[in-house]
């Protein structure tokens, strides 16, 4: 959405000379870093003033050293990897089931009648509310976590795929049929590309949903490894520095998902199909 905003005139004019671009880049970096420096400085001052116990409000260097210690010991990467694997497993489950159900709902009246009431009833309940029920039914641990993440992120995928397939223009379908396309070709060449922008939006929303819920579910499900569990477990020992290091890793993963996956997906659709305006 924000991509449509034209580049600022400043960056367009300074690109004339290479030295100026270098300058401009540094200025952008400095401008982005500035608020973090301010907030970090304020944090340091408060932490060193000793108003709050340092166990609860550790200075940044303590968080940094906890981060280094846990990374070198391989504990933090292990936690992060397990979280990512769970995210991927749950999301893959949701992507296949969601797209399949969504396409079925869009193409067949009967499937729509069957699934739409069920999906509409399940959707307004926040996914994490199902967590205790899933834990009760499927036990603590990985299986429940992955299943719940998949279940939760399936809803936006189903809805968007369904809308996308319905939004494929009837005239495209009919003209393809008139030109002799069989069912398979119709599906691969017309319906799928036509619905793809919506499907990708659904996948994006589903992944974001999965990410938001996963950390919380890890805390509840007592999985052996995982960033959510790391943070929640550190609470018992008042290891606020470990918690904040864990949150930093969560932020990095979230940011990477945003930049590498979501924005790529969006550009991919906009550029290749020109379907979105």
């Amino acid at each position: 959405m924000y991509d449509a905003v034209p580049a600022s005139p400043a960056s367009a004019t300074v690109s004339a000379t290479p030295g100026a671009t270098e300058d401009a880049r540094w200025r952008v970096i400095a401008r982005t870093a500035f608020p973090f420096v301010v907030v970090g400085g304020a944090w340091e001052i408060v932490a060193h003033l000793g108003i709050f116990p340092p166990r609860l409000f550790p200075p940044l260097e303590a968080v940094g050293s906890a981060f280094m210690r846990l990374t070198i010991a391989g504990i933090l990467p292990h936690h992060a990897l397990d979280t990512l694997v769970r995210l991927l497993a749950g999301f893959t489950l949701a992507a296949f089931a969601g797209v399949a159900i969504g396409i079925a709902m869009g193409r067949s009246r009967r499937a729509e009648d069957i699934f739409l009431p069920l999906v509409s009833i399940g959707a307004p309940i926040p996914g994490i509310a199902y967590a205790p029920l899933f834990l009760l039914w499927f036990g603590l641990g990985n299986f429940s976590t992955v299943l719940l993440v998949g279940f939760v992120s399936a809803f936006p995928i189903i809805f968007n795929t369904w809308t996308g397939v319905k939004a494929v223009k009837e005239i495209w379908v009919r003209s393809a049929q008139a030109m002799g396309a069989d069912q398979r070709r119709l599906f691969v060449k017309v319906i799928l590309p036509g619905a793809l922008p919506y499907i990708l939006t659904g996948l994006r929303l589903g992944l974001a949903q999965a990410w938001r819920i996963l950390v919380g579910v890890e805390m509840l499900a007592a999985v052996p490894w995982g960033l959510g569990w790391l943070i929640f477990g550190a609470r018992e020992f008042l290891n606020t520095d470990v918690m904040l290091a864990g949150i930093a890793v969560i932020a990095v993963i979230g940011l990477a998902l945003e930049k590498l996956v979501f924005q790529r997906l969006e550009q991919f659709t906009v550029v290749r199909w020109g379907m979105m305006t």
Binding site: V39, G216, I250, G254, L255
Partner: peptide, 17 residues
């Protein structure tokens, strides 16, 4: 910049802190 750094952190991650 602050908002884009904080936004990707799911709110539930802050619960223990």
């Amino acid at each position: 910049p602050l908002a884009s750094a904080l936004m990707p952190i799911p709110s539930l991650a802050w619960v223990p802190v």
